[in-house]
Simulated assay, not measured.
Amino acid sequence: MLIHNLSKENTILNVFMSELRDKTIQTDNMRFRRNIERIGEILAYELSKSLHFKSKIIETPLDTTEINLPENEIVICSILRAGIPLHNGLLNYFDAAENAFISAYRHHKSAPERFEIIVEYLACPSLENKTLILADPMLATGQSMVATYEALKPFGTPKEIHLVSVIGAEEGVAYVSNHFKNENAHLWISTIDKNLNEKGYIVPGLGDAGDLCFGQKLQQ
């Protein structure tokens, strides 16, 4: 897997990241969602550089011109619910893409630090020979990404896989890198933090992205 860590360069992305992390700003749910969406747009732009392009002749009102356009058939799959704003950012740029949605959540067992990933809802087009973009803003342990991909396998084999996240932990990045060993697999991520706490949350991270986007959920 090729890892593209955008935090290695100083760009406007740092402004959006700082607001996502800042506990005094992130209480504005609408701004939090919009910042994730804007980061999704930046990640989409960077990802687009790796796609396959083909020359096409465009007719203007005055003449014709030649331009290279992407020819990939893209499917964007987001993990509900925190993945929705990130999905929207990607879709703003890949507006011809097909879409898939999946619910994947942590089911905690006897102790808070022990959990398994449960997949319940899934809607997906064919993935055969297409470019799959898996979008989840928080890449903590990496288990959700892997569980999602395993659930998508009955829909076909994509020719390329792109994982897209806002924040990851080194442990989660290592986990998905070990699982997605194909040379046609990429990870596009805004920044990578060093640690996970005892509950499997990214530190320093930003908190619960789903709650900050859409409000706190009832625990069951």
Rank of each mutant, 00 (worst) to 15 (best):
A44L: 15
P61N: 05
F180Q: 00
N14I: 03
N72K: 06
D95K: 12
A82W: 00
H179N: 06
S144G: 08
K54M: 09
H52R: 15
G215V: 10
P154V: 02
W188P: 01
N29D: 11
N182M: 02
G89N: 03
G207E: 01
G215T: 12
I167E: 00
F155L: 00
A140R: 06
N68K: 13
K130R: 14
A97Y: 08
G210M: 03
F53Q: 13
T27P: 02
P158T: 08
I79V: 06
L139K: 01
P125K: 13
V15Q: 11
C124T: 15
I79P: 03
L212E: 11
H179P: 01
A151E: 00
E9D: 13
G89Y: 12
F32M: 04
T27R: 12
E73H: 13
E198K: 14
G215L: 09
I102M: 05
A82G: 02
E116C: 02
F16S: 03
C213K: 00
A209F: 09
K54F: 04
R34N: 12
T27V: 15
I57Q: 03
S177L: 03
A140G: 04
R34L: 10
N10F: 00
E160L: 07
M138D: 06
S190D: 01
I3Q: 05
T131V: 07
R33W: 03
K199S: 06
Q26Y: 14
P137I: 01
Q143W: 04
M138F: 02
A123R: 15
F94M: 07
V15P: 06
M138H: 06
E9L: 07
S78D: 11
M17Q: 13
Y121N: 13
F32G: 06
L51D: 09
R106Q: 06
S126G: 08
I12V: 13
V146L: 01
K109C: 04
